[in-house]
Design a protein around this nucleic acid. Structure first.
Lengths: 87, 87
DNA sequence: ATATAATTTAGATAGTTGTCTAAATATCTA
DNA sequence: TAGATATTTAGACAACTATCTAAATTATAT
């Protein structure tokens, strides 16, 4: 995943908060939404941006769709950012 | 400086390239501009965003204005980001 | 003083983005 | 097969942003 797409994804506070929430545990879209004051379609948009950036994955479980952090990409990005910031 | 303002500043590829260029050495605005295909006013806008985010500093030297990385904020941000990515 | 050089500011514009409502899709249950 | 639940897709809209041209600012040199 490119640094560009990742940083675009991280540049929104709602999306960073979603990631913080998913650090604690995997959650269904609706459960994630309870932490925010936006509609579900808006949340869905943000989840999609995070998915495009490969920062989260999801899988259906019955009626729900469970979102999880994509840990390997998360770590990969940490490395790239540290490199970027190393003078 | 907040993570939000910093990440907003970093979310644009032109601005990241400016930072990469300033890693090598301090440069006047016009010199920085030679690396890009945008007008000087557009460049000036990006430099201003980086300044607002405290990622660069500048000082006048005669007719030129010399831009430099703000290393302490650069390092501070590296730390914050690593923390963010630590599960 | 006047002209030249380097940069920024002002104002306009097109494209992007976050948000919403309404409708569609997918799954479960009675 | 209906009806209920969970989520996404479609389409519209306001706010934001990157860009441009033209004008203003600041400093140097003749």
């Amino acid at each position: 995943m490119t640094l560009n797409i990742t940083l675009q994804a991280l540049s929104d506070p709602t999306r960073r908060k979603i990631l913080e929430i998913l650090k604690k545990k995997d959650l269904a879209a609706g459960e994630i939404g309870k932490n925010f004051d936006i509609t579900l379609p808006s949340l869905s948009h943000h989840l999609n941006v995070l998915k495009q950036a490969d920062l989260v994955t999801c899988q259906r479980r019955g009626q729900e769709i469970i979102y999880s952090l994509n840990l390997s990409v998360f770590e990969e990005m940490a490395e790239k950012l540290v490199k970027f910031f190393k003078k």
